[in-house]
Design a protein around this nucleic acid. Structure first.
Length: 554
RNA sequence: GGGCCCGUAGCUCAGUGGUAGAGCAGUUGGCUUUUAACCAAUUGGUCGUAGGUUCGAUCCCUACCGGGCUCACCA
C-alpha cells in the first residue's frame, strides 16, 4: 500500500541502479537514492530486491542486443482480432490454414517447462496463449524469454494453432521485447482487492482486474450512445465555462479559485444550466453538454466532488416532452449497452421497459411513508412528520446538533416546499428502485422552473429515480425574467435564513431572459450514477477512473 | 464532521502479551502441449506512525495518518 510510507516502496541503493533518482509513483516526488539510503538504510530491502532483480534482467536483455525502450512494435493485428477470427476454428482447420499473425501484449503469466513455455498475453480485455519452444526461436530470442517476467510487454510473430488441450494459441517464431515491468504484478490469482490501492493506482487495477476495463468500456459506450442520440436529434454539443464568476444553477457549495492576471476570484461551476439557457436565448434551440461539475461537499458512494453531467435544453418543449425523451433515451441505452431492458443492480432487478412509473411527490410520500396525503397540506402536521421521519433532524448521540440551530428551529425556519422535499427524501427516495418519475415539485425548491398554470405553488418538473438514486432532473424552464428575478431574491432570503446552499443570484442571466427565451424544457442526467446502474457498481468511485483521494503525506 | 470497521512479505490472507506464518509471486535446480502447470530447495517483514502500560507489545491503551461502510450534507 502506497500511502503508508512503507519502506518497500523506496528505491534500492544497489549500485547496479543506473539512475540516480527515481520517481515514487504514489507521490510523484523525486527521491535521491543515495540520500534515501543514508537516511534509512534499513528501509530498502524488500520490494527493491524484486525491482533489483528485474533491473538486472533488463540489463541482460540490453546486453543481448535488444533495445531496452524500442520506439515501435511490429504488429499486424490485435489479440482481440485473432481471438475473434480463430476462436471458432478447429485444430485441423487451423493446421491447414497456417495463419501467421504479429501481435503485442503484456505477459500476464508464464508457465515454463525448461525448454518450452506458455506465455499468457493480454491486450485490453483480450487474452491469448503463446507457445515458445527453444528450437522454434532464434537463440537470442530464447535468451530474451529467459529474462522475461509477468508484467513485461512483448511482440510475437507466429502461427495460430490449438494445443492438445484445445487452447487457441500462437506458436512463436519470433519474440521481441517492448518494455520491462520493473515492479511486480499483484497476485495472478487473487488480483488486487485493496480498494485504496485500486483507486490510487488505477493503472495496477486495470492491469490485473479485467472487470475494471469492462466497466470503463461500458462507460465510454454510454457516453457515445448519448452523443449519437442527441446529435441525431438535432442538438448541437457545446462547452460552457467551468470557471465562473458566479456559481449558480444549482443548490450546492462551490470550489473557489483565483485568476492571477485579472486578480479575481472565480468559482468552479456547480452546473452549466444558466449558460446553456443563454444559448437558447441566443437562438441555438437544441443544445447539450457532457462535462464535469464540481461541488464542494461530502464524498460518499454516490458523490464525488467532480462528477459528469449531461445537460440538454430543447426549445418548444415542456417537461412532459422530456418524460418521453427520457424513457426513449434510457431504454435505448439499456438495449445498446446490455442488449436487454433488464439490469441487476445491488441485487435488485431493474427494468427499463417503457413506460416508467410515475408519482407526484406527495403521492410518493403517501405511498412509501404510509402517510395520509391530506396531512401534507397542513403546515403543523408536515413539521411533525419531518421531525418524526427525517433522521437529519435527530440530535446526535452526544446530545449536540450539526448546526447551532436546534432541530426544531431549523425546521420552523424552512418553507413548506422544502419540508415536503425533505420528507420525500427521507421516506421515498431509497424505495424507488425501478425507474420512477417524481413530478409536481414545490415551487419553493425549484427556482429555475416554470410554475404550473393550474397551481402556482408547484412547478412543471420531474426527477427520475433509479436504484434509489436521483439520476435525472428536468423541468419546463422559467422564461419570465421578472418572475426569475423574484425567485432569485427569494433564494437570497433563504440564504439569509441559514440555507447556505440556496441558489446565487445571476443578474446577467435575468438580463438574458429579458431578450426572450422561447418555451424550453431542460434536463440534467448524472452520467456517473447512470454508469453505476448499468455496470452494477456499488460505488461511484468504481465508475470514475481517478476518484478524489486524500493525498498521502511523507 | 459523527458512529462502526480495517491497516501483518510484492499480492491475497492467517496468527500470538515472550520481537511472526501460509499460498501465490521472486530466486536456484529439474521438466519441449501447460491451464492457479508440476516436483525439490530457498530469499523476503522495525506487523500503518508516534507515545503509553508492561520485565517484555505486532497483540492491551491513547493520539495521529490512510482507507472502507454508514449517518449528516448533496446529485
Amino acid at each position: 500500500m502506497p500511502g503508508r510510507d512503507r519502506c518497500s516502496d523506496r528505491p534500492s541503493r544497489n549500485p547496479a541502479n543506473r539512475r540516480s533518482s527515481f520517481v515514487d509513483s504514489t507521490s510523484g516526488r523525486d527521491y535521491d537514492v543515495a540520500r534515501m539510503s543514508e537516511e534509512s538504510p534499513q528501509l530498502e530491502v524488500s520490494e527493491s530486491e524484486l525491482i533489483r532483480v528485474r533491473r538486472e534482467k533488463l540489463d541482460r536483455i540490453a546486453a543481448l542486443g535488444f533495445d531496452a525502450y524500442p520506439t515501435t512494435a511490429d504488429v499486424d493485428t490485435t489479440i482481440a482480432e485473432v481471438v475473434a477470427a480463430y476462436a471458432g476454428k478447429s485444430g485441423e482447420e487451423l493446421e491447414a490454414a497456417k495463419a501467421n499473425v504479429k501481435i503485442a501484449g503484456r505477459i500476464m503469466g508464464i508457465r515454463a517447462f525448461g525448454k518450452a513455455a506458455f506465455l499468457v498475453l493480454s491486450e485490453k480485455t483480450a487474452r491469448i496463449q503463446v507457445y515458445c519452444r527453444m528450437d522454434s526461436l532464434p537463440e537470442r530470442e530464447w535468451a530474451l524469454y529467459q529474462n522475461l517476467d509477468a508484467g513485461d510487454w512483448v511482440e510475437v510473430a507466429g502461427t495460430v494453432f490449438r494445443t492438445k488441450t484445445n487452447e487457441l494459441s500462437i506458436k512463436a517464431s519470433h519474440l521481441g521485447f517492448l518494455v520491462k515491468a520493473l515492479r511486480p504484478l499483484p497476485s495472478k490469482w487473487h488480483g488486487l482487492t485493496d480498494v485504496e490501492q485500486r483507486y490510487r493506482q488505477r493503472y495496477v487495477d486495470l492491469i490485473v482486474n479485467d472487470s475494471v476495463k469492462a466497466t470503463f468500456e461500458t462507460r465510454a459506450k454510454i457516453v457515445r450512445y448519448i452523443r449519437n442520440y442527441f446529435d441525431g436529434n438535432g442538438f448541437i454539443e457545446v462547452e460552457t465555462p467551468m470557471m465562473q464568476p458566479i456559481a449558480s444553477g444549482a443548490a450546492a457549495r462551490p470550489f473557489r479559485t483565483h485568476h492571477n492576471a485579472l486578480d479575481i476570484d472565480l468559482f468552479m461551476r456547480i452546473a452549466p444550466e444558466l449558460y446553456l439557457k443563454r444559448l437558447i436565448v441566443g437562438g441555438l434551440s437544441r443544445v447539450y453538454e457532457i462535462n464535469r461539475n464540481f461541488r464542494n461537499e461530502g464524498i460518499s458512494t454516490q458523490h464525488n466532488p467532480e462528477f459528469t453531467m449531461l445537460e440538454f435544453y430543447e426549445a418548444y418543449a415542456d417537461y412532459n416532452d422530456l418524460i418521453v425523451r427520457t424513457e426513449e433515451l434510457f431504454s435505448g441505452l439499456a438495449h445498446e449497452v446490455l442488449g436487454t431492458d433488464k439490469v441487476q443492480f445491488r441485487g435488485n432487478e431493474i427494468s427499463f421497459a417503457r413506460p416508467f412509473k410515475r408519482f407526484t411527490m406527495k403521492q410518493a410520500i403517501a405511498e412509501f411513508g404510509g402517510i395520509d396525503i391530506r396531512e401534507l397540506d397542513d403546515r403543523g402536521k408536515l413539521e411533525s412528520l419531518v421531525v418524526a421521519r427525517a433522521k437529519a433532524f435527530h440530535p446526535k448521540a452526544d446530545g449536540t446538533h450539526g448546526s447551532s440551530d436546534t432541530p426544531h428551529q431549523k425546521i420552523s425556519s424552512m418553507n413548506s416546499g422544502k419540508l415536503l422535499a425533505e420528507l420525500f427524501e427521507a421516506v421515498a427516495e431509497h424505495a424507488l428502485i425501478n425507474p420512477t418519475f417524481i413530478t409536481d415539485f414545490p415551487t419553493e425548491v425549484s427556482p429555475l422552473s416554470k410554475q404550473r398554470h393550474d397551481d402556482p405553488d408547484y412547478v412543471e418538473r420531474f426527477e427520475l429515480y433509479v436504484g434509489g438514486m436521483e439520476v435525472a432532473n428536468a423541468f419546463s424552464e422559467l422564461n419570465d425574467a421578472d418572475e426569475q428575478d423574484r425567485r432569485f431574491r427569494q433564494q437570497l432570503g433563504e440564504r439569509e435564513r441559514g440555507d447556505d446552499e440556496a441558489m446565487q443570484m445571476d443578474e446577467d442571466y435575468v438580463r438574458a431572459l429579458e431578450y426572450g427565451m422561447p418555451p424550453t424544457a431542460g434536463e440534467g442526467i448524472g452520467i456517473d450514477r447512470l454508469t453505476m446502474i448499468l455496470t452494477d457498481s456499488p460505488s461511484i468511485r468504481d465508475v470514475i477512473l481517478f476518484p478524489l483521494m486524500r493525498p498521502t503525506r511523507e
